[in-house]
Design a protein around this nucleic acid. Structure first.
Length: 727
DNA sequence: TACTATTTAATTTTT
DNA sequence: TTAAATAGTA
């Protein structure tokens, strides 16, 4: 068979190690793939090799990734390499695949057919509600910690009944809450992210026939980012592989940066124990960065003990040395970075080819102010995604309630939004009824409105229930986008947000309309047993969408080092390289924590292709306090020969940056004085109301500021006339 | 019920 | 510093 197929497209342009991995015999294989070593490539070519050369049916392949983006990319690349669509090839995230299984086998999984997926925000709200119901003090039992506990246990594959309180009353309570949480979820047909994985695992574990079926079907398992698998994900894979399935896993132990989220690098070692015959292939040749950058990265990561050990190398040249800049403070650091970005852009480079990476999100602020001031377009990664926006979740809650009357989370979310006279008091009554009769809020509402509530409240509740019922009727038989469109109007959400003053309300309305177009372009699976609406709701929960709409303007990229994983840029800045910030204070004391920070640093360094700047501030304002800091220990771990200290310490401060907060009020209202206004400063204007300073220019009596008013929009004002009050 | 004052805490994030 | 959550007030 093999000689009949032209293997050239699959094997050309692969190096020896890559080729070894791609053409490995049908045995368990572990590929340790360093940063920029062509990891995705190997995975994609391996899939193509199995299908095209080994003659495997795409049906027998299961490919798992961590993000939807990676899954989509993998499918696309496999299809273009094979030059044919591979619809029957299962490619997806762990969660997506688990979801698919659970929908298919909802009975065996002991779930209602129309079970709903809740995201972490829904989960947190649910826990808060639960505490309120049980009359538990939420300052002693912090909802976030409970959430963390529950998810942590689920990630380890543990149910409440598996847990022992070890005589610790604290732990006993946690376990009890976990148990209570589970009951609420089961009653409401709600499934959180970790639950998807856990259920999918239990589904196979407890149904020998089903497991056998899938084992026979999926003979080959491809896994991306293997170092990020948590225990339940590993157990799921292990179960599926059995004694005959052939796993092909790709990962990099040095890029494991999600331990706090349940990821366990140890699975890489475990894999070799579970599959003693496993072939190990190391990909160490890097196609991304200069030798200097790689040597720096190698030197830094060499300080970690817990690793398999590998060394990145390149056939390319040394390139530029790494520039280290010691800034006076965070503002000076930002100024320096912006000056270098200016040069870069002036030399005709793309802004989108540059990135500023930092340890924590709060650091973006100073950079953003500087970039706005310099008029350089930028994009900050992270933040709220489309389906996570409050107004979108409100609309989805209506849709969910229509589809699933028992969804208490959704019920509480929108029962009084827009306000319809169902206050906290009334909700409390419904809650306690629901608790006393262990029924859902929807049923409680019906019962309570008929006999317990006073006239006005009862009417309001009846009206709400009728609204939902009526919407459910009106929507039946409509297209998905018509359903969504109808619901956002009939629910009163659109009008509710229209009343919201200023731009905020406008954006919300726009987002709601955007939801309608999202529904329009959503393609339900014709083979699915679910209604298109339910499919759409699952999609919304599993794929939160893009962070920002206007992503593709050419702009400087700002993001945390975590979000930078997997990306590459010709020009990279690592900002805020100070002990306490990076490595972060909270990880510094724990050796494991420190090693993870170091891996993060390794990730950061290896994002750079040509030019890498490392900057730190000798003094940094953190939480409103000025702190002196030491350069990050990671800088000292980069060999001196790769480093060039840059010190264009020219004039550090510019007058309008001087943050003389205390005298600012007087300075701003008295013409001619030195201005004390600051970007981001909140101000109040007699006519335009409240706003924020976006920009300023000029000096003394001519000084002008650009203010974004909440209601009046953006205006340029002459400071000496405007009479702004600082707030 | 909506607005305002006060308190509190402050990594990293995909599903 | 500042953002978010909570408590208190009009």
């Amino acid at each position: 068979m093999q000689h009949l197929v032209d293997v050239t497209p699959i094997l050309e342009n692969l190096n020896d190690a890559q080729r070894e991995a791609v053409t490995a015999p049908a045995e368990p294989t572990l590929v340790i793939a360093g940063a920029g070593s062509g990891k995705t490539r190997v995975l994609v070519h391996r899939a193509a090799w199995l299908i095209d050369v080994e003659g495997l049916s795409p049906q027998s392949l299961l490919a798992v990734t961590f993000t939807n983006k990676a899954a989509a990319e993998m499918r696309g690349r496999i299809e273009s390499l094979l030059d044919m669509p591979v619809a029957h090839l299962w490619i997806g995230t762990f969660h997506g695949l688990a979801h698919r299984l659970l929908r298919r086998h909802w009975r065996e999984a002991n779930l209602p057919q129309n079970f709903q997926i809740i995201d972490s925000d829904d989960q947190l709200r649910l826990i808060k509600r639960l505490l309120k119901n049980l009359e538990i003090d939420d300052s002693r039992w912090v909802p976030r910690e409970i959430q963390y506990f529950i998810n942590g246990q689920k990630d380890e594959g543990l149910r409440p009944q598996h847990l022992d309180d070890d005589g610790d009353p604290n732990r006993r309570q946690m376990i009890a809450l976990y148990q209570a949480y589970e009951e609420v979820c089961q009653r409401g047909g709600l499934v959180d992210f970790a639950e998807l994985l856990l259920r999918a695992h239990e589904l196979w574990r407890d149904n020998a026939e089903l497991l056998e079926h899938y084992r026979r079907r999926f003979t080959h398992l491809l896994v991306d980012e293997f170092q990020d698998t948590n225990s339940i994900q590993y157990a799921w894979l292990r179960l599926l592989a059995g004694d005959t399935g052939i796993p092909f896993v790709v990962g990099d132990d040095d890029q494991s940066i999600y331990r706090w989220r349940g990821a366990r690098v140890e699975h890489i070692y475990r894999f070799q124990k579970d599959f003693p015959s496993a072939r190990v292939v190391k990909l160490e040749q890097n196609y991304r960065s200069t030798a200097t950058i790689l040597n720096a990265a190698n030197a830094v990561i060499a300080n970690n003990n817990a690793r398999m050990g590998k060394n990145l190398w390149t056939e390319g040249s040394d390139g530029e040395s790494i520039k280290v800049y010691a800034a006076y403070n965070e503002r000076d650091e930002a100024d320096f970075i912006i000056a270098r970005l200016r040069d870069w852009i002036d030399q005709g480079n793309l802004r989108a080819d540059s990135a500023v990476l930092y340890r924590s999100n709060a650091q973006s602020r100073v950079l953003e102010e500087g970039l706005i001031n310099a008029g350089i377009p930028y994009r900050v990664y992270g933040g709220l995604r489309f389906f996570e926006r409050a107004e979108i979740k409100d609309a989805l809650a209506y849709l969910r309630l229509i589809s699933h009357r028992d969804d208490d989370s959704s019920f509480e979310r929108i029962v009084n939004k827009p306000t319809r006279g169902i206050g906290a008091r009334t909700i409390d009554i419904m809650r306690s009824y629901a608790r006393a009769n262990s029924c859902t809020l929807w049923r409680a509402a019906g019962a309570v409105a008929s006999d317990e509530l006073a006239g006005r409240a009862a009417n309001a509740v009846h009206a709400f229930m009728q609204l939902i019922e009526r919407m459910a009727q009106d929507v039946a038989g409509l297209d998905l986008q018509e359903q969504v469109d109808h619901v956002i109007h009939a629910s009163g959400l659109i009008d509710f947000f229209k009343k919201d003053k200023g731009e905020k309300g406008e954006t919300r309305v726009e987002n709601l309309l955007e939801l309608v177009s999202a529904a329009r372009s959503f393609e339900p699976d014709p083979a699915s047993e679910m209604s298109p609406l339910d499919e759409f709701l699952s999609h919304a929960a599993l794929e939160a969408g893009e962070g920002q709409a206007d992503a593709w303007e050419d702009c400087v990229q700002l993001m945390t080092m975590h979000s930078a994983k997997g990306l590459e840029f010709p020009l990279v800045f690592l900002a805020g390289m100070e002990d306490g910030l990076f490595p972060h204070q909270r990880s510094i004391a724990d050796p494991n924590g420190l090693e993870e920070e170091r891996r993060l640093c390794y990730v950061g360094i290896t994002r750079a292709m040509q030019t890498l700047y490392v900057t730190y501030a000798e003094q940094r304002r953190l939480h409103g306090m000025d702190n002196f800091s030491q350069p990050s220990r990671f800088i000292a771990e980069i060999p001196d020969e790769h480093i060039e200290e840059v010190r264009p310490r020219v004039q550090v401060s510019r007058p309008m940056h001087t943050p003389r907060r205390s005298s600012a009020g007087r300075a701003a209202s008295a013409p001619g004085n030195e201005l004390g206004v600051r970007l981001g400063q909140r101000v109040r204007h007699g006519k335009f109301g409240d706003g924020v300073i976006l920009n300023c220019e000029g000096q003394g009596a001519h000084a002008r500021v650009e203010v974004n008013f909440e209601t009046a929009g953006t205006k340029w004002l002459v400071l000496s006339y405007a009479n702004l009050d600082l707030m």
